[in-house]
């Protein structure tokens, strides 16, 4: 199972997915979990996902919830692009998912979104509010991955 952290680490909490996946390298994880720092992968995500049977994506998510909240999303719940157009930065994850669906290559997926505090400041490192909750966020994500991996074993 592949776990991909996404985001731009030069834009404060926008890079939370990458920071969490890198922190997970120091934690105990189920066997067979591969951690990938996907960065600003954009369309490359399609190449990373195709051929996998199961995948977890960790990324910042915009939601009306307190910063640091970890949200579980089904790929179907990932927001539609505003228009029926194709813009890589508008929301690449949705676009990648749509193309994989058409190509019949979508792996079974879990998306873990983390609500950011600040994604507008040009800064390497997290905002104070996410920094404070970081250990807690990493642990929540780890537990979700563990739970998801266990589901795989039971099926």
């Amino acid at each position: 199972m592949i776990v991909i952290g996404l985001g731009n680490i030069l834009l404060c909490d926008e890079g939370i997915g990458v920071h969490v996946v890198n922190a997970l390298r120091e934690r105990e994880l189920p066997d067979g979990v591969e951690l990938v720092d996907g960065g600003v992968a954009g369309f490359t995500l399609l190449n990373m996902l195709e051929g996998e049977t199961r995948a977890v994506i960790v990324d910042a998510v915009s939601a009306p919830l307190p910063p640091g909240t970890v949200v579980r999303l089904d790929p179907k719940e990932v927001g539609k692009s505003k228009e029926e157009k194709y813009s890589l930065h508008d929301f690449s994850l949705r676009d990648v998912l749509d193309l994989m669906n058409l190509r019949g290559t979508t792996p079974e997926m879990l998306i873990l979104g983390i609500v950011p505090g600040d994604i507008h400041t040009y800064k390497i490192g997290l905002s104070p509010e996410l920094e404070e909750k970081f250990e807690d966020i990493v642990e929540k994500v780890r537990k979700e991955i563990e739970k998801y991996a266990r589901q795989e074993r039971s099926t």
Partner: peptide, 10 residues
């Protein structure tokens, strides 16, 4: 508005 199929928003 935003250009479709262009990296970023222009």
């Amino acid at each position: 508005g935003h250009l479709a199929r262009v990296e970023g928003h222009g």
